[in-house]
Write a protein that binds this DNA or RNA. Structure first.
Lengths: 202, 202
DNA sequence: GTCTATATCGCGATAGAC
DNA sequence: GTCTATCGCGATATAGAC
């Protein structure tokens, strides 16, 4: 690899790192391109040598996160469909999703802000939500095919679960304990507000 | 009321109506002040006679909705705390919240976009979420005091429930049937994915 | 490939006539 | 109170030297 190409690679990763930091601190919409080049220690014009726009830089961060996410899922052996109503499996799933999202807070936040800025009628956020929860939907469809009774349409249930998770991951102050969150969400999604013992048992 | 004051009131409500329409169509962030005055059939400068900024106009729409919301809650007699794990009460609560949110889609969307634009570190969305779910939290605390086992900390559970609702209300295409959504959410929040019969029953 | 300097533009906000 | 006209800022994107 030539000197110039190497320098280019360095600049590119410096820009990505700076963007990550700034997106986490002040959000995607509030981060200007000059902010990114500034913290990366580069000139404004250099940005466009690597990305056509802020939006395109975000796509790069996005694919990074997805690769990381599917790697984590694969290593946990969650590729095969299984019963989400099994406490161990459900908790595992939620834990992996939570860790990836919280570990990439900046990216989650930026994707979220970007989709929201497109406006409600654009459907960008709904697309993002259904795409991101496709794994849940498949598991739920598998459960339904096994004869299980579900709370409703798999796509809707999956979107509800994913929406809950991602909104919390976005908004929640970093101080919250990850374990507490995962425990609570597992309990809520597994047995609801009524708890593990059915009403008639009271 | 004098002629001028009357004309002013007309202009103001025209601006509010135009803003409502545009916020629903293209979202809050994508709506420019000149868009609002344009659709309202007024000149750009007139806007500032009534509102100091787009943000202030949004506050006016917000108070409108809250008054409407608390009126709806009062007429349903949901002021007193009761058991959210009761299917009838839970469904009632979710239905009222859903109707108000979907009936004021534009305002919900605008508040949401405004809070998101403030960035994740600002905590604006978290504040909005905890404030908006204060009613749930109170009910959950009441349940806990009655000796009920909850999935977790009331504030967290309330935020999770509210986040799910409001994100769905924001993103979901208008075509979805309200009844189906309310039924599904009630079932999910009441008994979770495992359903009304506990696992040991299988 | 990176830099500095600058063109360009959308949009919020104001001034002043009617 | 409403209108037309315009100022001025902030931010994207480009031009051209090194």
């Amino acid at each position: 690899m030539g000197v110039r190409k190497l320098q280019a690679a360095e600049t590119e990763s410096a820009l990505l790192a700076a963007a990550r930091q700034l997106f986490a601190e002040r959000g995607y919409l509030n981060t200007k391109i000059t902010d990114i080049t500034g913290t990366a220690g580069r000139a404004t014009g250099s940005f466009y040598q690597h990305f056509a726009s802020k939006e395109e830089l975000l796509r790069a961060l996005e694919t990074d996160m997805y690769e990381q996410g599917s790697a984590a899922l694969a290593s946990e052996g969650t590729g095969e469909p299984h019963d989400l109503a099994d406490p161990v499996h459900l908790r595992e799933h939620l834990a992996v999703a939570w860790e990836v999202m919280r570990g990439n807070r900046a990216v989650v936040a930026a994707l979220f802000e970007s989709a929201v800025a497109a406006g409600p009628a654009s459907g960008a956020l709904w697309d993002q939500l259904t795409t991101g929860t496709a794994v849940y939907r498949e598991h739920l469809e598998y459960m339904r095919d096994q004869g299980r009774e579900l709370p409703g349409d798999p796509e809707l249930v999956a979107a509800a679960m994913g929406g809950m998770m991602s909104l919390l991951a976005y908004t929640m102050p970093p101080a919250y304990s990850a374990d507490a969150v995962i425990d609570t969400l597992t309990a809520l999604l597994l047995h609801g507000l009524a708890g593990p013992i059915s009403d008639s048992g009271r």
